[in-house]
Lab assay of single mutants.
Amino acid sequence: HMTFVALYDYVASGETDLSFKKGERLQIVNNTEGDWWLAHSLTTGRTGYISSNYVAPSD
């Protein structure tokens, strides 16, 4: 899985979204569905959809 880092804080707007904080590391589970990616937070252990605009590759 690809690992990304959050560029900004994000508060989930629905049950399927994932809230995260700036600097949080996220593993991308599925990024084939446009701008919203299914991600797993390595910080909180939660999984949900994130906006690809809010993250950048961590490598």
Rank of each mutant, 00 (worst) to 15 (best):
G14K: 15
S13E: 12
W36L: 13
N53E: 14
V29W: 13
T43H: 08
L42W: 05
K21Y: 06
L26V: 04
E33I: 11
F20V: 07
T47G: 04
V5S: 03
M2P: 13
Y10M: 05
T47D: 06
S19N: 05
A12W: 02
H40I: 15
V55T: 03
R46I: 06
E24C: 02
S19L: 06
W36I: 12
W37E: 00
G14L: 12
A56R: 10
G23I: 01
E33G: 12
T44E: 01
D35H: 10
G34F: 06
V5Y: 08
W37Q: 03
S19F: 03
Y49Q: 04
N53F: 14
V5H: 04
Q27I: 15
S19C: 05
W37L: 08
T3C: 13
A6Y: 02
G45R: 04
A12G: 12
K22R: 09
D9N: 05
T44C: 01
A6G: 04
K21N: 08
G45D: 05
W36A: 07
V55C: 07
T44G: 02
A6W: 02
R46C: 09
T16A: 12
R46K: 15
H1C: 15
L38T: 03
G23P: 01
G14F: 12
D59N: 12
L18R: 01
F20S: 00
I28K: 07
F4S: 02
L42H: 05
F4D: 00
E24T: 02
D59P: 13
T47N: 06
K21M: 09
G14V: 14
G23D: 04
W37D: 00
S13D: 10
E15G: 08
M2I: 11
G45E: 04
E15V: 10
L18M: 12
H1M: 13
L26K: 00
L42T: 06
T43Q: 08
G48E: 01
T3F: 14
R46F: 08
E24M: 01
E24Q: 02
Y10K: 03
L18T: 03
R25F: 14
T47Q: 08
T43Y: 05
N30Y: 10
Y10C: 10
A56E: 11
L26N: 00
M2L: 13
K21P: 01
H1Q: 12
S41K: 00
V5M: 06
Y49T: 04
N53P: 06
P57N: 07
G45C: 07
T3W: 13
K22G: 02
S52D: 03
N31L: 13
N30G: 15
R25V: 15
N31V: 11
Q27L: 15
I28G: 03
L7W: 04
T16Y: 14
Y10H: 09
L26D: 00
L38E: 04
L7P: 03
